[in-house]
Design a protein around this nucleic acid. Structure first.
Lengths: 180, 180
DNA sequence: CCTCTCATGTAAGACGTTACATGATTCA
DNA sequence: TGAATCATGTAACGTCTTACATGAGAGG
């Protein structure tokens, strides 16, 4: 359970409610973790029953009362133990596009080029978003800033690869049509 | 279900049995997907009951008989439809190290540097492995070769980031000790 | 009027991981 | 003797996704 520590980590900064936690995870770890309410609300209940957080309700004028969670002393200890431990597992990248890619040898080369182009468009958009986040985080601590930098650099690496891949595929295609 | 298409894709090349499929996925998509027998054997049964593959047993002298699977015509059609469709979801990166990283502000800076160093060691090892795979794949089709290239480039980007991050963290630490 | 945002949650199902069980052979 | 490799599989458990349900207010 990793979402557990992501939540516990955010609660070190300040007291938060589930809805806000989702926003922050998507803003700060968006390129790594997706989260949905189906995970967050049960996870918060678990954390509470383990005694790592406490909850208080804060009435809201136009919406259901917020449930604000705070870390307990036990929660802080457990979090710093986790933080100081070496990460158990390796990075893993899941990408439906990359899963398709090595099989493009069995499909239409033109369609492959189209799909690569769709990915280029996608990563260009993401690049702009990441640049915005970098500006917003100018004042944050190094760790947060470095994470933004990594996002940008991985995005750039991906884009460079997509563009050079597209060129190579196009070069191959034009060779074929010359031959006809 | 994406493992389904990974298996179906490998079966386009040649008939395979579950054990071999696992090896190939780990060799070819190792940096994206991890697989285990708990997924593969049930997945093969599903593919069979959907009529996308057929199975025949091949006796083996010193081990249980292999169950060799072949794609059917239906399996080929379903696979090429999937291949030509645009990938539904975006890339996602899951990394327990990167999940910890933004919270290092709450821990011991020296421990953070240590953990970053552990990651550097890990990615250096992976870099060597990837270089080996590249050599082995010299004769493969472009798609397979490009995938190796991507693995190498993402690995390099990660290493560069880790190294510059470590330097920055160390610079900050030495500033602090000067101040004392 | 309809959709979006805020704010909570549940239930079902899909997907993935871990651990177990079997059994012969090869290698240190 | 013990571990690793080949080869099959199941069961239990964790995690994640999707879809649903509620309800008020803001803005086009």
């Amino acid at each position: 359970m990793s979402i557990k520590y992501a939540i516990l980590g955010l609660l070190q900064y300040k007291d938060l409610h589930g809805y806000r936690i989702k926003q922050l995870i998507e803003r700060d770890f968006g390129f790594m973790w997706t989260v949905n309410f189906g995970q967050i609300y049960p996870a918060l209940k678990n954390l509470e029953s383990e005694g790592l957080v406490t909850m208080r309700q804060v009435p809201q004028p136009n919406s259901p009362p917020r449930k604000l969670y705070s870390v307990t002393a036990k929660g802080k200890t457990e979090f710093s133990d986790w933080l100081a431990s070496s990460p158990e597992k390796q990075m893993m990248l899941r990408d439906p596009f990359l899963l398709r890619f090595p099989f493009f040898a069995f499909g239409e080369p033109d369609r492959a080029i189209e799909i690569v182009q769709e990915q280029i468009d996608l990563y260009r958009k993401l690049q702009e978003q990441r640049a915005d986040v970098r500006v917003q985080r100018g004042k944050a601590n190094i760790y947060a800033r470095q994470i933004s930098e990594l996002g940008i650099e991985l995005n750039d690496a991906m884009l460079r690869w997509l563009e050079s891949t597209k060129k190579r595929l196009e070069a191959l295609e034009s060779k074929k049509s010359e031959a006809i």
